[in-house]
Design a protein around this nucleic acid. Sequence first.
DNA 1: CAGTGGTCTAGACCACCAC
DNA 2: TGGTGGTCTAGACCACTGA
Lengths: 248, 248
Amino acid sequence: MGRVRYLEIAEALRAAILSGDYPVGAQLPSESDLAARWSASRGTVRQAVATLASEGLIGSRQGARRIVLRQERRHSFGELNSFAQWAEGVGHEVHSRFLSRTRRPATAEEAERLALAPGTEILAVLRLRLLDGEPTMVERTAYADWVAAAVEAMEPDCRSVMDGLAAGSAIVAHYGEHLIDALAAGSEDARLLGIRRGSPLLRQRHVSATNTGRPIEWSDDRYLAGSVTFSVSNSAVATPLERHAGDR
Amino acid sequence: MGRVRYLEIAEALRAAILSGDYPVGAQLPSESDLAARWSASRGTVRQAVATLASEGLIGSRQGARRIVLRQERRHSFGELNSFAQWAEGVGHEVHSRFLSRTRRPATAEEAERLALAPGTEILAVLRLRLLDGEPTMVERTAYADWVAAAVEAMEPDCRSVMDGLAAGSAIVAHYGEHLIDALAAGSEDARLLGIRRGSPLLRQRHVSATNTGRPIEWSDDRYLAGSVTFSVSNSAVATPLERHAGDR
DNA sequence: CAGTGGTCTAGACCACCAC
DNA sequence: TGGTGGTCTAGACCACTGA
């Protein structure tokens, strides 16, 4: 059993919401109610409902009961950071093809994103990702020098590099930063994905870091338009997503 | 002064991080340190640092001091939900052109998103948005029946509908849900934005709701590729963004 | 006006980290 | 081993909601 009380309570409430016991718009029990029912303190209950609020499942306003906002599962950290973890989580089959793996000095941006000295040698990887057999995403990743050897040692068609790093080297991603925009397919993108040059692509650039904040990889992932959608909930008290101006 | 202690503390820490007093990678003072310095309880300090953690500014691990992850301002709720608020926040001039405003029965999806009975009459608005004078975004919004009259009463080139609703009718958005993907410009998109049909667009569909969870509007915003980027940070303990599979 | 969530306190014990 | 963050308790007062 989960030895952490507030996670137990959060999980039970989450399950009740997802199963429809509390439909969208319904009120949750009051804090004191929940505290009594779980024989926990009010603080612990508040930690539980705060967890659900951060997932966008419930909303709250002073003076009124909490209400259910959505009735959908929220993805985990790994499912946003790893293509393979996400695909399997939503029940798709994923394949990978390493097209090239070369060591070269980092570009200025790569050095910046990976917190490396300019010109440090990184491992540049080009991969084509297939979802249920169809080409879906082109991934260009720069791995920091200190993980390069571990990545090079992996199978040429391994399912998930991040999973491999975690299993083989105990290198685990804890933090991620993601930049999402759209762009036209270049000639290489077009050839690999089997589309015309200039076709719309959804791009997700992201850096993953360890629990000490040390960057592991900086990646540029380009999805076929229509193949994926990103989703985010926000509220007046906490906003996780932002919007940046591009170059004009 | 902000009468809420933990927000005061959070604001001071945030300012210190943004100003570079605590550069990326630096350690923050310990909780007991901060508690003593602010003569607050540890709980209050934890609430403050939790706020910064939810903004992606700092990270924490049991046993070690908190560390600074980023050194960037995080946008507010309004700046993600309102084009005008965002544009002004980043120092751009924004103009709007109402191209059409018509009442018509809601489509199935609109009724679903706005939590209305199928066929309820909504207000459909087509707007072209300009950033610093250049066409940047095409916005197609469906306003719920109960706000339609207030929206119709607005100036034909008003800066921000949501600001107008807040000022005129005390209708304020508290919750938002956003779906982000890419698609090819249709003929209307292309004509309005001055680009070729099939050019890549970044699409942000979103629904805004009041603090009682009542949906106000459901909007389909299409940005010129390269004009905006969305950004999100996540961590192993809290993930605000998710990725969905599209139709295949 | 009673009920509810938002804030705050002053303790406590534990798991984990770095030295 | 001492310091740190993670969890939990049992109170308290206040601001707001809703009948």
